[in-house]
Design a protein around this nucleic acid. Structure first.
Length: 274
DNA sequence: AGTGAGGCCTGAAAGC
DNA sequence: TGCTTTCAGGCCTCAC
């Protein structure tokens, strides 16, 4: 379940592994991802040199020296694998990039991810980015911004945190974690969230995501397996998937509760969070 | 316009 | 044991 920290970690790992490589060959075995991979995708990247790596929200953007950018989203089950030489391909290996510095494989069983390409200068006109909210680490994300964005909404705060057009990069797992640290119930309506609580949400979003990125970086070193897998590391979650376990951060002795909001599970401590 | 439900998709886990 | 059902979640489309 790649959220911002996982995407950031994977982007960094790919950058470190193949850096400014030349793309010598691309194989597309399945183009039916969430968005169909363009028919001429291979020819557009063939022979190009990679000049930049970015994370935009939960997307990885790889800029090429031919003024085009590759856009990758991992959806729910997407993985990136890196090999030094020709790997043995397995089920759901949909796209393989052969470069001068190694082989990068995109594997996605559920095919909720996507791979696309566009002119670099048109990047922010793409539907993926056009309506995207502020990155959690962007200085422009302030308590005032959040407050003004959610203040008149009639949705739960948990749902608002998942709305990528407000803040981008937060997914279902970290939404619960951020609310837990902020002592706010996931079911609280947005119009009942104070400016002060918006500050807590912004601060805790940065704390939680930063910790996960650091953990991801360190976990990845130990995690790199012979199969080249850059899968998902286990994070230190306080409440996510901890139903029935004791609230870890205080002495309330309360058990973590699971509920479903808009078809997504939320986890919280009924004593700590109000 | 804002909001919520449904759907995409597969594999693991739970249920029978 | 082996089959069927449920669940997981990012994000888009559709309907109210």
């Amino acid at each position: 379940m790649p959220e911002l920290p996982e995407v950031e970690t994977i982007k960094n790992a790919v950058q470190k592994s193949i850096a400014n490589a030349n793309i010598s060959k691309v194989e597309v075995f399945c183009n039916k991802l969430r968005i169909k991979i363009p028919e001429n995708f291979s020819t557009q990247v063939l022979g190009a040199k990679i000049v930049d790596y970015k994370r935009i929200g939960k997307y990885i953007v790889i800029a090429l020296d031919n003024q085009k950018s590759i856009i990758i989203h991992l959806g729910m089950s997407g993985k990136i694998k890196i090999f030094e030489t020709q790997p043995e391909l397995i089920k759901h290996d949909h796209v393989v990039f052969y470069t001068s510095n190694g082989v990068v494989v995109y594997n996605d069983p559920r095919r909720f991810g996507l791979i696309d390409i566009c002119e670099s200068k048109e990047l922010f006109n793409k539907v993926y980015f056009a309506k995207m909210g502020i990155d959690p680490f962007d200085k422009k994300l302030t308590q005032q911004y959040l407050f003004e964005k959610i203040n008149n909404k009639r949705i739960d705060i948990k749902t608002a945190l998942l709305d990528q057009s407000i803040i981008n990069g937060i997914g279902n797992i970290y939404a619960s974690e951020i609310l837990y640290l902020s002592k706010i119930l996931p079911t609280r309506n947005c119009d009942k969230i104070s400016l002060e609580e918006c500050k807590a949400l912004v601060d805790n979003a940065r704390i939680v995501l930063n910790q996960a990125i650091e953990k991801g970086g360190s976990t990845l070193r130990d995690y790199q397996k012979p199969d080249g897998s850059l899968g998902y590391f286990q994070n230190m979650h306080c409440v996510y998937n901890k139903t029935g376990q004791k609230c870890p951060k205080c002495n309330c002795n309360e058990a973590i509760v699971k509920i479903v909001q808009k078809g997504r599970s939320s986890f919280y401590c009924p004593t700590k969070q109000k």
